[in-house]
Design a protein around this nucleic acid. Sequence first.
RNA 1: GGAGAGGUGUCUGAGUGGUCGAAAGAGCACGCCUGGAAAGUGUGUAUACGUCAAAAGCGUAUCGAGGGUUCGAAUCCCUCCCUCUCCGCCA
Length: 423
Amino acid sequence: MLQVSYIRDNKEQVLERLAVKNFKQTELVDELIALDDSRRQTQNRLDSTSAEANAAAKRIGEMMRTGQKAEAEQLKSQTGTWKEEIKQLSEQLNTIEQELQQKIVLLPNLPHSSVPKGVSAEDNEVVLESGEKPVLPANALPHWELAAKYNLIDFELGVKITGAGFPVYKGKGAKLQRALISFFLDEAEKAGYNEVMLPLMVNEASGFGTGQLPDKEGQMYFVGQDNLYLIPTAEVPITNLYRDVILKLDELPVKNTGYTPCFRREAGSYGAHVRGLNRLHQFDKVELVQVVHPDQSYEVLEGMSAHVQGLLQKLGLAYRVLRLCGGDMGFTAALTYDMETWSAAQQRWLEVSSVSNFETYQSNRLKLRFRNAEGKTQLAHTLNGSALALPRIVATLLENNQTEQGIKIPEILVPYTKFEWID
RNA sequence: GGAGAGGUGUCUGAGUGGUCGAAAGAGCACGCCUGGAAAGUGUGUAUACGUCAAAAGCGUAUCGAGGGUUCGAAUCCCUCCCUCUCCGCCA
């Protein structure tokens, strides 16, 4: 979330930036500033009243010790007003703070100055396109048919045991999943990321910390009996490792990677475009998360983007990089690059990675700080990116590499799969 | 799930109503000492909010969380959360 002090000092700029995300609620910003005013005022009054009451209590203590009983009793009788006032003021302060909190989380992160204006995916800026789009013969099959033909993925079985969007991977299909996960993790390790394995369910505080709660509540599976959410991405548990943490300057940058299944309800998205592996309720993903010094975060973002692109190149996939426009960006991001691979049989781009800089938006919620060169605490910047999400990579690999003899496994993966062909 | 114990600062750990943001030790930082290091020694070492242009300073809050008793709570009472031990169950 944004910091009220920043909003107060940079109101015009904040409004201007928010407009890029098509967020035009001037009143909300004004309300926040007004709330903050009354918060300060109330706190001021509460503090000075408390100070008086504390001083009186101290004096009473001294009187008791020195045997001035009568004087102590007299002073005691005067404390009632303070008590009452303190109670009222702290209740007021509480209410104000709650309201402030409720409202400030309604503001999305401010987009970086390079974020293009726009309302939908149409307005995203294509930063670069790389690789040759493969040209397939006329009888080429989409991945869901290939998956059936070679007995790699069984969607119906998944429906039987769970429901739509929970595929069952079998034989070489299962091995391909495992191979990709290992490959991605190894590459991350080579790039200096520390591997972690994490809980797949998180509590409410974690969901709040990374920004899934309260607004994206409906996107997560909720285990009501224990008040836990199934993670929609490893970003949530990994980033929350650093909730309420003050890092030393030399501990930055923190670089973690983790493989987890991801669970998404995807309520309301059905239709032809979600066929096969295109959109699932459960899928596998390797995630990168960094906690960095604010001065470095945009450089780091480029580095993460380069890392993801390296993976796509090694897999021999044609891809493009998009800079998301204000309207298509996530609520919490300041700048996001999406990577899309070209799915040759479906003749469309599939999003396989999203790399974002959140600046202090998450760290402010997380209370994730570091001690800067002056020895003061300062909010760190957080970033994350998929490297990579498996299903659409698998879809693209199957489709783009199909031949008369079967599906050719990219060379780089063969040490992991231990087979060269799916046939 | 049943019974019991307990949650204090970076850590260990003292503290059962006032002088406690909190002893002591360790760690860490800086200085002295040393040819250098160790040892020794001295000083410092929480966070947030408010006040201030800012810093210093000052004020307030925080000893798992929330509420209560009291002039005054780390300390007493209530609720919740968590951890540990034993029993039960179990990959």
